Amino acid sequence: KCNTATCATQRLANFLVHSSNNFGAILSSTNVGSNTY
């Protein structure tokens, strides 16, 4: 594990990016499902 501020910031940034991608995918699939019905 790294405990430097830079490494922690990069890890946090990566986490936010992945979370945003997952959130966007969920919204996209939900919109497609609602449009189908």
Rank of each mutant, 00 (worst) to 15 (best):
A25C: 15
R11C: 10
R11N: 14
C2H: 09
I26K: 05
G33Q: 14
V32E: 04
S19T: 14
T4F: 07
N31R: 04
L12R: 10
S29V: 15
N31T: 09
S29T: 14
S28D: 06
A5G: 11
F15L: 11
T6H: 11
T30V: 12
G24R: 01
R11Q: 11
S19V: 13
A13D: 03
S28F: 09
T36W: 07
N21S: 03
G24P: 00
S34T: 10
T4K: 06
N31K: 04
V17S: 05
N3T: 08
S20C: 06
F23M: 06
F15W: 04
S29F: 09
N31Q: 08
N21E: 01
T6S: 11
S19Y: 08
S29E: 10
Y37H: 10
T4L: 08
S19W: 00
F15R: 02
F23I: 13
H18V: 15
L16Y: 15
N21T: 05
T4W: 04
N22M: 02
A13E: 05
N21Y: 11
T4V: 10
A25I: 15
Q10D: 10
N35G: 11
S28A: 10
G24C: 05
C2I: 00
A13Y: 08
A8S: 13
S20N: 15
N31F: 00
A5W: 04
S29D: 01
V17C: 02
R11G: 14
G33V: 14
H18I: 15
K1G: 13
N35S: 11
Y37V: 09
T4I: 12
G33P: 07
K1M: 12
G24M: 00
S29W: 09
L27Y: 15
K1P: 12
L16D: 01
L12V: 15
T36L: 14
N31D: 00
A5N: 12
N21W: 00
A13M: 10
Q10E: 08
I26H: 00
T6Y: 10
G33I: 11
V17A: 04
N14V: 11
G33S: 12
T9A: 07
L12K: 07
C2V: 03
F15E: 01
G24N: 10
H18Q: 09
S20W: 03
F15N: 08
N35K: 10
N31W: 05
S28C: 14
T30I: 12
T4S: 13
N22C: 01
T6M: 07
S28W: 03
S34M: 06
N22Y: 02
F23R: 01
G24S: 05
C7G: 02
K1Y: 09
T36N: 14
S29G: 04
S34Q: 10
F23T: 05
S20L: 04
N3Y: 02
A25S: 11
A13L: 04
S20R: 01
T36F: 12
S28M: 08
S28H: 13
I26S: 03
S19R: 02
L27N: 09
S34V: 08
A5Q: 12
K1V: 10
Y37E: 08
S20H: 14
A8G: 15
T36Y: 11
Q10G: 13
